[in-house]
């Protein structure tokens, strides 16, 4: 059988309708809406960041009327300063310890509040109690814990001890980390609670039918469902905690000696105690670079989620 090919009849070319040019006002409209935000970001973020990066390559700016370029001298000075290295180590301990504890405590409390074993009224009471630390500012938290942990304070009274929690070189770093853990876990708790409430009950039911134990349900159902939230929260908390200043400054000021010196307090002292604004800018740029690494992973994770 012969194939019959039906060719389409030639059609007269239809002229395309003339393209209407968008009026200028409509083209400019989205830029108009964006302009205030862009202008504010430029003035409040871009300019300061560029200035600080520029300062880090000059000799002492601000105090020096005619600062000159010194290349990477400031970076060499800061990176070879033993206090900077101590501050980096302390910041690492403080940040990793805080974030890990925030995650564990936040998850435990979130699961507790999500448990069907708790009635509505106790749940509301616990929720209010657990979220309390999040409502205080860093200044209030610092004053509160300084009083509680004072040698004559409530904690020592309850423990019948006279430990110098914040003034002892052996305990100070652990103590400020503990305070930061207390202050920050509610953020994880609230976010993870929202995540837990979004986990479909059918998944748990199916796992139960398949004979999974409570631990297996937690590890193979709950955690995978929460993974995107956990990664986002962890990255954000790493960025925020590594920049913690107010709490450290108001509880120990970086002491005793320099056992609680963080990158933030080190930078502050360079700027406002030694008036070495170029070295302070250098330290700030180094902190910015470290934060950018974390921010890179955060943005990449968010994009992958999208």
């Amino acid at each position: 059988m012969q194939d019959v090919i039906v060719a389409p009849a030639p059609q007269a070319a239809t002229p395309e309708p003339p393209r209407r040019r968008r009026p200028l006002s409509r083209t400019a409209e989205p830029y108009g809406f964006l302009a205030p935000t862009l202008a504010l970001m430029f003035v409040l973020m871009i300019i300061p960041v560029v200035l600080v990066v520029g300062y880090s390559f000059m000799d002492n700016v601000i105090l020096n009327a005619t600062p000159e370029l010194v290349g990477v001298d400031n970076f060499v000075t800061v990176l070879t300063d033993s206090v900077f290295l101590t501050a980096t180590g302390n910041t690492l301990f403080f940040t990793v310890g805080s974030v890990a504890a925030h995650l564990v405590i936040g998850l435990c409390f979130a699961m507790l509040l999500n448990s069907p074993l708790i009635g509505n009224i106790p749940r509301a009471i616990f929720r209010a109690l657990y979220i309390l630390p999040w409502l205080f500012t860093a200044a209030v938290i610092a004053v509160l814990w300084r009083m509680l942990l004072a040698p004559n304070g409530v904690i020592n009274y309850l423990l019948s001890t006279d430990v110098e929690w914040l003034a002892s070189p052996a305990l100070a770093l652990g103590t400020v980390t503990f305070i930061n853990i207390w202050a920050g876990y509610p953020f994880f708790m609230v976010s993870l609670l929202a995540g837990l409430q979004g986990v479909p009950a059918q998944l748990h039911e199916a796992a139960t039918v398949d004979g999974a134990s409570a631990w297996q349900r937690f590890w193979n159902v709950t955690i995978p469902q929460l993974r995107p939230i956990i990664i986002s929260l962890t990255l954000l908390d790493l960025i925020w905690t590594s920049q913690q200043f107010a709490l450290i400054w108001m509880t120990t000021g970086g002491g005793p000696v320099n056992v609680t010196e963080m990158l933030s307090t080190y930078t502050y002292k360079l700027a406002f105690s030694r008036y070495e604004f170029s070295l302070a800018s250098t330290s700030a740029v180094l902190v910015l670079l470290m934060s950018m690494v974390l921010a890179f992973f955060y943005v990449r994770h968010q994009r992958a989620g999208d």
């Binding site: 409209e29 108009g32 809406f33 302009a35 205030p36 504010l40 003035v43």
Partner: peptide, 19 residues
């Protein structure tokens, strides 16, 4: 909405300039 957008933009720029 357009007028509001342009007005907001103008005020935003003026505010920034004012800073």
């Amino acid at each position: 909405v357009q007028a509001a957008g342009v007005t907001a933009a103008t005020f935003g720029l003026l505010a920034v300039a004012g800073c």
